[in-house]
Simulated assay, not measured.
Amino acid sequence: MLPGTDVAGDLADISAGRGTWRPEVNRYEVNGRTYAVEASGTVFPVSGPGLVNLSRSEYKVLRQLIGSDGDIGAAREALRRDPSVGDADWRPALDVFRHHKSYKGGA
């Protein structure tokens, strides 16, 4: 989720009945975003403005970038030998990382 995305506000809108329920897909739509509902009743964001879907490998890169405190070179070195991470996984992770407080520019 990107900064400024008001998921809490969306959930409040859903609770107040201001979301549109789509029973055929078991999802709510509110403020341009879609929220799925688990069997337990848990509602979670799926898609829409301010939400970014990452694969497991892309998310692994993002976590490493954050864990490396924005040092992209250190993150690349840490994941260099990980067979689950390929070159294509870096661009989507970097696109999201650019919104993180530890992003220092580059790449």
Score class of each variant (00 low, 15 high):
Lys104Asp: 08
Ala78Gly: 06
Val37Asn: 03
Thr20Lys: 15
Lys101Ile: 11
Thr5Lys: 03
Val7Trp: 03
Pro83Phe: 10
Phe44Val: 04
Met1Phe: 10
Pro3Glu: 05
Arg33Lys: 05
Val43His: 04
Asn53Pro: 10
Val46Gln: 12
Asp71Gln: 07
Gly86His: 11
Ser102Phe: 07
Ala93Gln: 04
Ile72Asp: 02
Gly19Glu: 00
Gly41Glu: 02
Thr5Val: 04
Leu79Thr: 03
Ala39Glu: 14
Gly67Trp: 05
Gly70Phe: 01
Ile14Arg: 00
Asp82Ala: 09
Gly32Arg: 04
Arg22Lys: 14
Pro92Glu: 03
Gly19Met: 03
Thr20Gly: 09
Arg22Val: 12
Ala12Leu: 12
Leu94Glu: 08
Ser57Val: 02
Asp71Lys: 08
Gly17Asp: 00
Ile14Val: 01
Thr34Asp: 08
Arg81Lys: 14
Tyr59Ile: 07
His100Tyr: 11
Asp89Trp: 02
Tyr35Asp: 01
Glu38Asp: 13
Thr5Ala: 05
Val85Arg: 02
Val43Tyr: 02
Gly105Gln: 01
Glu38Gln: 14
Gly19Arg: 00
Leu65Asp: 00
His100Lys: 07
Arg80Ile: 11
Pro45Thr: 02
Trp90Gln: 03
Ala74Asn: 13
Gly86Pro: 07
Leu2Thr: 00
Asn26Tyr: 11
Ala93Ile: 05
Arg27Glu: 15
Glu38His: 14
Asp6His: 05
Asp95Cys: 09
Asp69Tyr: 12
Ala107Asp: 15
Lys104Leu: 10
Asp69Lys: 12
Asn53Cys: 11
Tyr28Val: 01
Tyr59Lys: 13
Ser84Asp: 15
Leu11Ile: 00
Gly19Ala: 07
Leu62Lys: 03
Ser57Ile: 01
Ser55Phe: 04
Asp6Glu: 06
Thr42Ala: 14
Trp21Ser: 01
Pro83Leu: 12
Gly4Trp: 00
Ala8Ile: 08
Asp71Ile: 04
Ile66Thr: 07
Ala107Glu: 15
Ile14Trp: 03
Ser47Asp: 10
Pro45Val: 00
Asp87Pro: 11
Val96Asp: 07
Asn53Tyr: 10
Ala36Lys: 05
Ala16Glu: 11
Ser47Thr: 09
Asp82Glu: 13
Glu24Thr: 12
Trp90Ile: 00
Asp69Ala: 12
Pro45Arg: 00
Thr5Pro: 03
Ile66Asn: 05
Arg18Ser: 08
